[in-house]
């Protein structure tokens, strides 16, 4: 088992569209641990997740991130995934015609892992996560509800068995039942497979399901406080601004440039998957 794995992030700085969003993040996650990162909107939480995964328009200016000593930064996104990192996205993109099975099959094949019995394993896992068959038949995320998307993100996580999973606001868009199902599956993976988890969230309700071992508070691109579950209670009581005052932190957020979302080629037209009727 992978019980000795560790994800080590050291002094990570990153910019988006020229603006420094991450301003020195240090964090170590060991196998089987659940860490939560909390912070106000705009503090850099999601930037951390995409910087770790290597999103093309995010630029690392210094620092390192390793899994078991293997540097992730500067390598291709798919290599990071193959090194054992998984990012459950806050807004999973719709890919018409590409089923979960196609995706997982391509990922396993690229790692040289056999795909025999894949359909059966996928079905078993889908049953465990209460993902209905129709969502396996359709293109991934294609016209899925928010809850279905997150269940299917978790399904992929369970199929791909990474060493570490970054869950970027996996609680957003989830109803109570789905949140519980997803969290329970993640917790089971930490116990059964030694999965290390970095859960990014804005809300405390994920914590009651995920029961993190460590909680970190992020403000203005840095982790400003770390500790156990008591940090969540403290936040509950005084809020982010109150905590910032207690810690003597002046800035809560990083001002983001207006348009960072898309990185489309401006020379060509619109997304051919988009509905031209705007329906």
């Amino acid at each position: 088992m992978v019980a000795t794995s560790e994800l080590v992030i050291r002094d990570l700085h990153a910019t988006v569209a020229g603006l420094e969003i991450l301003r020195g993040v240090d964090l170590t996650v060991h196998a089987g641990e659940v860490h939560a990162i909390m912070g106000p909107n705009g503090c850099g939480k999601s930037t951390l997740s995409h910087t770790l995964m290597g999103r093309p328009d995010y630029t690392v200016t210094s620092g390192s991130a390793t899994i078991d000593g293997v540097e992730l930064l500067g390598t291709a996104t798919y290599s990071r995934a193959q090194a054992g990192l998984f990012l459950a996205m806050q807004y999973p993109v719709e890919i018409p015609g590409v089923r979960v099975e196609d995706l997982v099959g391509a990922s396993l094949a690229a790692r040289g892992v056999g795909v025999e019995g894949l359909a059966q394993r996928l079905n078993d896992e889908a049953n465990r996560l209460l993902v209905r068959d129709e969502f396996l038949e359709r293109g991934v995320n294609d016209e899925f509800s928010g809850g279905e998307k997150k269940r299917v993100e978790t399904l992929q996580l369970a199929m791909l068995r990474p060493k570490f999973a970054v869950l970027d606001e996996i609680d957003s868009g989830l109803d109570v039942d789905a949140l519980r199902d997803v969290a329970r599956r993640v917790v089971a993976m930490t116990q059964e497979d030694g999965l290390g988890v970095l859960a990014i969230t804005h809300y405390a309700r994920l914590l009651t399901e995920l029961k993190p071992d460590f909680i970190h508070v992020m403000m203005a691109g840095r982790i400003v406080a770390s500790g156990g579950p008591e940090i969540a209670d403290q936040l509950e009581e005084v809020g982010y601004e109150g905590l910032a005052r207690q810690l003597g932190v002046n800035e809560l957020t990083v001002q983001k440039p207006l348009a960072t979302g898309k990185f489309e080629d401006p020379t060509v037209g619109s997304n051919p998957f988009a509905d031209p009727l705007g329906l």
Binding site: M53, R55, P56, A76, T77, Y78, A81, Q82, F86, L87, M89, P92, V93, I95, V98, L103, V104, A106, S107, A110, R111, Q156, L160, K262, F263, E264, D265, V268, G269, S270, N271, P272, F273, A274, D275, P276, L277
Partner: peptide, 21 residues
């Protein structure tokens, strides 16, 4: 309706994030 465009970078990134080259 009609559309003309390249492969969506977000879709490529999503698949790559799952380990697909």
């Amino acid at each position: 309706g009609s559309t003309v465009g390249p492969i969506d970078d977000e879709q490529r990134y999503y698949l790559e994030s799952r380990g697909v080259p």
